[in-house]
Write a protein that binds this DNA or RNA. Structure first.
Length: 680
DNA sequence: CTTAGGG
DNA sequence: CCCTAAG
């Protein structure tokens, strides 16, 4: 609703249009919040979503009478109930702490009778660790186990060995200064742990076999074969142990055709909140969309790309690490850690990259390409020591007046932006991209010693990997990377106040700032006409459509302790201040979200908190003497408006508050003009 | 998630 | 800018 009506509030002469608060439903979250839209998905959610998929798929073939109330009595201790839509519903608190599996944080029961699904092909998993016990000789179930185990490895590769950590959190882990978050994370992971089991195995679920099954987020997106067993008719039970834990799989022949997820946690908040806290923490650490890792937290925090998407089952996503067979025993869980591992000490620690004890001992000169050292191990594992890794081509534009330091930061941000948007690891063998993820290393020829230097890795935005329809077909589901390709736009204001904004130079993309002979994946037609504020330090990573050729050596001097860094300081320009002032004049203080949407919607780096803070400092600046002010001088005219608006809205807020306190109507406003009329 | 306010 | 309590 656009309100043309303007009402004179008799306040310093300017008129304030009545702008109703945007309905919640139509409000769009600012870019700042996008970071929360992806996040780590704990296993139970994945399973729940998986269940939803299974249900939907089985619905066609089965006249399912599954319903919410159709609970399996024997498994009613849980908290999460899986309904047919894949929604996870919290059960009552009283329902927990009962039953034989009270110690198990989660129990997931799988029941499925009707399915024609078969396990997906790549079920050959190297069971180099743990043992497998199969109650049934079915080949399928071997594959099932293989897949589950593969997923567990995958999970551990990504997130670390949480199953162990959860069971025995170290003191340091508990007492860390970030204990709160970590505990939250721990709780979450605990909540996210799951147990597959069949009803016939219920009695085996004891305190000792604390069953934890981690499922990769990609499980859902990629329609992993892990679901296959659940579709299998009259599935036998299977179990395997790992790290002393047992994962049991089973399906109930006597059960209805849906999957139940149950857990022992109490409230849904206990289930969700920690994750959200973690997300928040992650978001903070990652500064919205930039991928920053926190060394201290690296064991309990997850990189965005590893996080998957919390509401993956409801919305499209451009994330999605390809599911791959993780026959390797690489311990590290995120790409960036590998990178940081390189940057911190010049080489990967054996802990951080692989279980290979050999660190990068040779004094290789810094290489811009991925150097890989392979060593054939006796257990047929290929050991990698990655010196560096390529990242995709970047397109960076900074004003001439930018400092070298800001250039560095910009590049760093660009890198982080790409990584933060999700990245795949591309594998180049003999300079040729290995596209088939299902090929084994042996098949690819990577496992040979003579291929030491023939292999390289590169990071590439997920958009290059994701089906184009995901990003292109649906404008509303614009993928992160494509958003990143958009320049920061000048806030579009609807009044002539902001003439200076429109003086912003038109930024084009000649494509020659950084040598590039590749066409961009994205059409520049739109971005060409977009305006960029002069000080916006436009950051435009342009993913390469074919190969990531540009090589950007990873900084060698990033200390871990500095990795949790603040966002780069980006002083407000006069234009921005003007936009802010204008918006606040219209909307008032206390509606920063609306201010953000109105005037800074496209300025991803300005959050509503930033705007609020800026307003705070503006008020302060306007209060102090000009000699005391620092930074780019703000025109006095603007400061006057700041003071005026601040005074007005403070008064207005006070009145509102007074009215609230005394009850409406009790405290009559003397200035009728100061009241904001109700506009409908 | 937003707002508000201290650091 | 960060952090976080409070709603």
């Amino acid at each position: 609703m656009v309100l043309k009506k303007r009402v004179d509030y008799g306040f310093n002469g300017f008129r304030v249009p009545i702008i109703p608060k945007a309905p919640r439903s139509v409000r769009r979250r600012g870019p700042f919040n996008k970071a929360t839209e992806d996040g780590r998905v704990c296993a139970i959610e994945l399973l729940a979503s998986l269940a939803g998929q299974l249900l939907q798929e089985s619905e066609s073939s089965a006249s399912s009478n599954a319903s919410e109330g159709n609970r399996q009595p024997a498994f009613s201790q849980g908290v999460i109930e899986q309904d047919r839509q894949g929604e996870v519903k919290p059960l009552k608190k009283e329902e927990i702490h009962q039953g034989s599996c009270a110690e198990s944080t989660f129990k997931t029961e799988v029941g499925s009778q009707n399915s024609s699904q078969k396990p997906l092909p790549h079920a050959k998993t190297d069971f180099s660790q743990g043992h497998v016990s199969v109650n049934n000789d079915s080949d399928i179930w071997e594959k099932v186990q293989a897949d589950v185990k593969s997923e567990i490895f995958k999970w551990d590769n990504k997130f670390g060995n949480y199953s162990n950590r959860l069971v025995e959190p170290s003191e340091k882990f508990r007492e860390s200064s970030d204990c709160k978050m970590k505990n939250g994370f721990k709780q979450e992971m605990k909540a996210g742990s799951s147990c597959f089991r069949g009803s016939n195995l219920a009695d085996k679920c004891s305190l000792k076999d604390h069953i934890e099954l981690y499922v990769s987020p990609t499980l859902i997106n990629s329609k992993s074969n892990i679901k296959s067993p659940f579709h299998r008719k009259s599935s036998p039970s299977a179990s395997f142990s790992r790290h002393g834990n047992v994962v049991k799989l089973g399906s109930r022949d006597d059960d209805e055709n849906f999957l139940r997820c149950k857990r022992v946690c109490t409230k849904s908040k206990a289930f969700r909140s920690p994750r959200r806290i973690a997300h928040r923490r992650i978001r903070n650490l990652m500064s919205s969309k930039y991928w920053k890792t926190a060394p201290k937290l690296k064991d309990c925090e997850l990189s965005r790309s590893d996080l998957g998407v919390p509401h993956y089952h409801k919305r499209k996503t451009c994330y999605g690490f390809e599911r791959s067979q993780h026959n390797t025993i690489i311990k590290k869980r995120k790409i960036v850690d590998r990178v940081s591992g390189v940057t911190s000490d010049g080489g990967f620690s054996s802990e951080s990259v692989s279980n290979s004890p050999q660190k990068g001992t040779d004094g290789d000169k810094p290489s811009s390409s991925a150097k890989l050292h392979l060593a054939k191990a006796k257990d047929s594992h290929v050991k990698f020591s990655i010196k560096s890794i390529r990242i995709p081509e970047l397109y960076i534009e900074v004003p001439e007046t930018a400092t070298v330091g800001s250039l560095k930061r910009t590049i760093m941000e660009a890198v982080m932006a790409i990584l933060g948007g999700g990245a795949h690891v591309g594998v180049l063998h003999h300079g040729k991209k290995v596209r088939d993820d299902n090929r084994t290393l042996v098949q690819t020829g990577i496992s040979c010693n003579e291929n030491l230097d023939t292999l390289s890795f590169m990071l590439e935005p997920v958009s290059l990997q994701v089906s184009p329809t995901v990003c292109v077909g649906d404008p509303s589901s614009q993928c992160e990377t494509s958003q990143l390709t958009r320049p920061i736009e000048t806030p579009a204001l609807d009044s002539g106040i902001t003439d200076t904004l429109h003086d912003s130079p038109l930024v084009t993309y000649p494509g020659n700032l950084i040598e590039s002979n590749h066409e961009s994946t994205y059409s520049l037609a739109d971005t060409t006409i977009d305006k960029i504020t002069p000080d916006s330090r436009a950051l435009v990573p342009v993913p390469d459509s074919t190969e990531a050729l540009a090589v950007v050596p990873v900084s060698q001097k990033i200390k871990r302790s500095e990795f949790v860094q603040r966002r780069t300081r980006r002083p407000f320009s006069v234009s921005e201040v003007e936009a802010l002032v204008h918006a606040v004049e219209e909307l008032g203080t206390g509606r920063w979200r609306d201010v953000k949407l109105r005037a800074f919607e496209n300025a991803d780096h300005r959050t509503y908190v930033d705007l609020k803070d800026k307003w705070k400092t503006l008020v302060h600046t306007a209060t102090i003497s000009p000699q005391q002010r620092r930074g780019e001088p703000v025109p006095q005219e603007l400061l006057d408006r700041v003071l005026a608006a601040h005074a007005f809205w403070s008064q207005h807020q006070a009145k509102q508050h007074g009215k609230h306190q005394a009850g409406s109507g009790t405290l009559k406003i003397t200035e009728a003009s100061a009241e904001r009329p109700c506009v409908c």
